[in-house]
């Protein structure tokens, strides 16, 4: 069941070399790494309801953290789980920060003008949201990493500091729930 975003075999070793180059201050490697990983990271933020509006900001914040943490990458280790582990906590910190702000902020009568998000992206995200709405956070995150960011089971397990068995179980439960949701939707439609 190959998804279009699934990692291709040539890709991961390339990332390892780029990451090593980044650690050695090779600017070409750093640029290439950012170009190659950013789309996956942005998708990860985009397809989670609470981080969508801030996907670009979170992408930048994640790279700043990656930059500060680059010495903790072990040469030869998988790159995506390492970066996504940082991205997870960037999203989590954002969630905590937003909750704090929401508790303090006051409702304004008129919403200020803000740049319109890409219509196509928004439609796709809403479609995804509807499907994922009933899933618990852990199952939704695993599904987004597997199917949207195109990571393997092993990579997701590393990024979430859990076992492969636990990732498989969460993905399986998510599929079962989605299947039920889609079956109900299909009968109504």
């Amino acid at each position: 069941m190959p998804a279009p975003t699934a990692p291709d075999p040539e890709y991961s070793p390339g990332l390892k070399l780029l990451m090593r180059g980044y650690q050695q201050a090779d600017d070409k490697a750093a640029k290439a790494l950012i170009e190659q990983v950013s789309p996956r990271l942005r998708r990860y933020f985009w397809f989670q309801a609470f981080t969508r509006r801030f996907a670009d900001d979170l992408l930048q914040e994640t790279w700043m953290r990656v930059h500060r943490a680059r010495h903790t990458y072990r040469p030869g280790a998988a790159v995506l789980p390492w970066i996504f582990a940082i991205a997870r906590y960037t999203a989590l910190d954002h969630y905590r920060r937003t909750r704090r702000v929401e508790l303090r902020e006051m409702q304004v009568e008129e919403m200020p003008d803000c740049p319109a998000p890409e219509a196509e992206f928004l439609r796709e995200a809403h479609e995804m949201d509807k499907m994922l709405a009933d899933l618990p956070e852990g199952q939704r995150e695993v599904l987004v990493m597997l199917k949207v960011s195109g990571m393997s089971l092993e990579e997701v397990a590393l990024a979430t500091s859990s076992s492969i068995g636990s990732v498989k179980q969460r993905a399986h439960r998510a599929y079962t729930k989605l299947r039920d949701v889609l079956a109900v939707g299909g009968r109504r439609g």
Binding site: P4, T5, P39, R43, W46, F47, E124, E127, M128, K147
Partner: peptide, 16 residues
């Protein structure tokens, strides 16, 4: 899911 995943757009690298 693949259909709803962002593809490479006019803005450069897939959605960024």
């Amino acid at each position: 899911n693949a259909k709803s995943a962002p593809s490479t757009g006019a803005d450069g690298v897939a959605g960024v």
